[in-house]
């Protein structure tokens, strides 16, 4: 099982005059149980691609295979269980919380996906604990929370429904730096411990590079690159066009590689690792 896009195209109706397609005959094949990052310049089709994964947007042409489900262009019906198995966290999390309290929001998904009350409460509680939401926060209305707390609540609400694939559109915007790292670590754990597939759209390569298995670069509705983060480093054309910044770890390694005769990079070097490499090279 995986995620496959076959010749998928999509054009926004209100932008019909625009020359390029939001998704332009996309062919993409991804393995599940991975941490996948999608990057690209604004308007390159990242969010559009994500919304095709759970049927929020329907392709004009082409077929999408997600897990064992097939999404065909409308009017074909969406596969049963699609919404439960693929959870989507929007760019603006306040758009997806609508109950009076966070606790009710967390229960909403599981109850609607036919869990019993006890099961739903357990799922909501586990998700809340995982995201570090205490009882005080759970009792509050979404509008009483800070932007960071709302984001965590929205992610918890999606996790509570127990999706196999969790898709997040710019999940770290408006979070403080430590919460960003915490969130990425949590998502990575979801991937490693729970076997879930995590798909993140971001423009902060630095935040995701240590965790990412596969990175996809989108450019004007097409897939411009699929590979490991360190393989992307030399593609300065893509990096510039996608408005990315090369993580400091790669930049420092590249600067030191020649003078210290370091081997070719094959993964993300942690600061401790790079320090050890420098030490070894100069002693």
């Amino acid at each position: 099982m995986g995620i496959t896009f076959e010749q998928v195209s999509y054009r926004y109706k209100e932008r019909a005059l625009k020359q390029h397609l939001a998704l332009d005959h996309i062919d993409l094949s991804l393995k599940t149980n991975q941490f996948i990052t999608i990057v690209g310049a604004p308007g390159s089709g990242k969010s559009t691609l994500l919304q095709h994964l759970n049927g929020l947007l329907r392709a004009d042409h082409g077929t999408i295979h997600v897990l064992d489900m097939v999404i065909s262009p409308s009017p074909a019906k969406l596969p049963k269980g699609l919404n439960q198995r693929i959870g989507l966290v929007f760019q603006y999390p306040e758009q997806q919380l609508f109950k009076e309290t966070i606790w009710e929001d967390l229960l909403y998904g599981p109850l609607n996906f036919d869990m019993s009350k006890t099961e739903a409460e357990l799922a909501a509680k586990t998700a809340a604990e995982f995201m570090g939401l205490d009882d005080l926060i759970l009792a509050k209305c979404p509008y009483q929370l800070s932007s960071g707390q709302i984001r965590k609540a929205a992610i918890a609400a999606v996790l509570a429904a127990g999706p196999e694939i969790i898709v997040l559109d710019e999940p770290t915007a408006s979070l403080d730096a430590s919460s960003r790292l915490e969130l990425m670590t949590l998502l990575h754990r979801q991937c490693q411990e729970q076997g879930r597939t995590v798909i993140v759209v971001t423009h902060a390569l630095e935040e995701v590079a240590p965790f990412t298995d596969q990175i996809i670069v989108m450019d004007e509705g097409t897939i411009a690159f699929v590979g490991k983060p360190h393989e992307l480093v030399n593609r300065t054309d893509l990096i510039d066009k996608a408005g990315l910044q090369i993580p400091a770890a790669y930049e420092l390694y590249a600067a030191l590689q020649k003078p210290l005769r370091l081997s070719k990079l094959d993964h993300y070097p942690s600061a401790a690792e790079l320090a050890a490499v420098i030490k070894a090279a100069i002693s």
Partner: peptide, 20 residues
């Protein structure tokens, strides 16, 4: 302030641990 130490600052710290 829940700011993450930048990579380069972490590297300085790790280098000191390595005696540099």
């Amino acid at each position: 302030c829940r700011l993450e130490a930048p990579y380069v600052l972490e590297l300085c710290k790790e280098l000191r641990l390595q005696g540099i």
